[in-house]
Design a protein around this nucleic acid. Sequence first.
DNA 1: TATTGTTATACTCTATAACTATA
DNA 2: TATAGTTATAGAGTATAACAATA
Lengths: 161, 161
Amino acid sequence: MGKVKPPRVGLAYLLSQVGAHAADDFARRLKPLGLTTQHVGILRLLAMKPKELTQRTLADYLRVQPSRLVLLLDELERDGLVTRVTDPDDRRCKRLAATKAGLARFRQVETVTNALEADMFEGLSRDDRVALIGLLRRVAGGVGLTPGVHPAYGRLAEKEK
Amino acid sequence: MGKVKPPRVGLAYLLSQVGAHAADDFARRLKPLGLTTQHVGILRLLAMKPKELTQRTLADYLRVQPSRLVLLLDELERDGLVTRVTDPDDRRCKRLAATKAGLARFRQVETVTNALEADMFEGLSRDDRVALIGLLRRVAGGVGLTPGVHPAYGRLAEKEK
DNA sequence: TATTGTTATACTCTATAACTATA
DNA sequence: TATAGTTATAGAGTATAACAATA
């Protein structure tokens, strides 16, 4: 069945392959918590308790379609993790905030993340990990990635260039 | 508009973020060639001129659904990059091969890849790149990734575990 | 008239199962 | 009966445009 020799691939491929594995593994571990990576991206920001964060601001930052954000927030709100409150000063806007349950759920996510990293980088020493982080940060900075904003959110990146 | 402070993220997140960027950038550069990353995954294997490669074998190796592979091969065949020949010994099987045009197209892909890597890792020295490759290979090996098989092909990875 | 959030719609990608032809 | 390839169908994700409420 498996008579196929592995082809040679470059650094970018390797990076994308390992990165995709990390994302898949994370998504799998998130499932028992009833969350997707997109939910977590939202919770991660709301957990910092930013003031005056509206759906529009969040959509712009994460590069999600506002219409997509509606559905994601519907789910988070239904589970009691997030609140949407109409702004009294501008009744068009809704102020977003994480609930206590939302913050607690996010701490669970952090536990999941720690477990993932422990497994995934088991073979790497402390120094190795520091070196890897440093190299990746330099690449990320070089190509202009925003810290904490995952490209998978909006594939509109294609249009920007 | 952008009053959001960047949250702290870990190594796995950084990896997935940079990896997703690499994949997006590659897909963007592939578009003028009329190919997707999935097409390239197939071409990459066929460019090694393996003997007796059938659709079933390819699907198992790449972890694509056979039904999905049909469509991908339809496109590659329509563009004259790949041939499907019914095996005379077992008329159910089709032997796959890259055409001359297919091999030429794949060389163009390699040029695109080189350009991508030159841009993406511009800020890294030769030694940095070697170090990064080494670290990533160790992670890839540690989590059991198959060289040259991108997780994005089959999301059925979720079921295996 | 412009903007926020929402709804409706279409399109792509993936997954499943049913079908055919061969064995 | 089992397998290789194909087709059909349904589901999730994404994108666009249209819409109601508010400014």
